[in-house]
């Protein structure tokens, strides 16, 4: 049962895809950022399950630990602590920007913002060429 045996990877892929879907499909910026968070959480799981050693205990070595104890690999855990910090900072920056967007635009819906920007761009000098260029720029 190889497929089931690697269920932890399935879980990570599913969580990641849920997050990714939210990033792509949601117009609400906060929901996008939440999606980004879920996406990154999936990656944390990947790293954590990577460090698992079957039968291994927590990698804490005290004075009484027998020398042949099996430990889980601590390195991925350490790495992912860093990644969690990074992800947290990303979240913080993103939310700070979104707060500013709410102040300046009065909305946090991506399509609304896009529409407002386009109207603003077209207002002074309406030009089909530039509107098309905006389209391409996405």
């Amino acid at each position: 049962m190889e497929l089931l045996g690697t269920y932890n990877y399935w879980v990570y892929v599913v969580i990641m895809m849920i997050g990714f879907y939210a990033v792509i499909a949601r117009h609400n910026l906060v929901k996008k950022v939440i999606g980004l968070g879920i996406f990154q959480t999936g990656i944390f799981l990947l790293y954590i399950s990577m460090g698992v050693v079957r039968g291994g205990s927590a990698p804490v070595r005290g004075p009484g630990t027998p020398p042949d104890t099996l430990f889980a690999n601590p390195l991925p855990h350490v790495l992912i602590l860093t990644a969690i910090v990074v992800s947290l900072s990303t979240m913080a920056v993103a939310l700070a920007i979104i707060v500013n967007i709410q102040r300046r635009y009065g909305t946090i819906e991506a399509d609304e913002i896009h529409r407002m920007d386009r109207e603003e761009a077209e207002a002074p000098a309406p030009s089909p060429v530039s509107a098309g260029a905006e389209e391409v720029a996405g």
Partner: peptide
């Protein structure tokens, strides 16, 4: 602001992909 958030989302996905790639390499 929208430019920055757009950059942030795309950039973070890019970085996450890199993170996944590095994870697999480590594996």
């Amino acid at each position: 602001l929208p430019a920055a958030i757009n950059y942030l989302v795309m950039g973070s996905i890019g970085a996450s992909f890199l993170l996944i790639g590095v994870g697999y390499l480590y594996m």
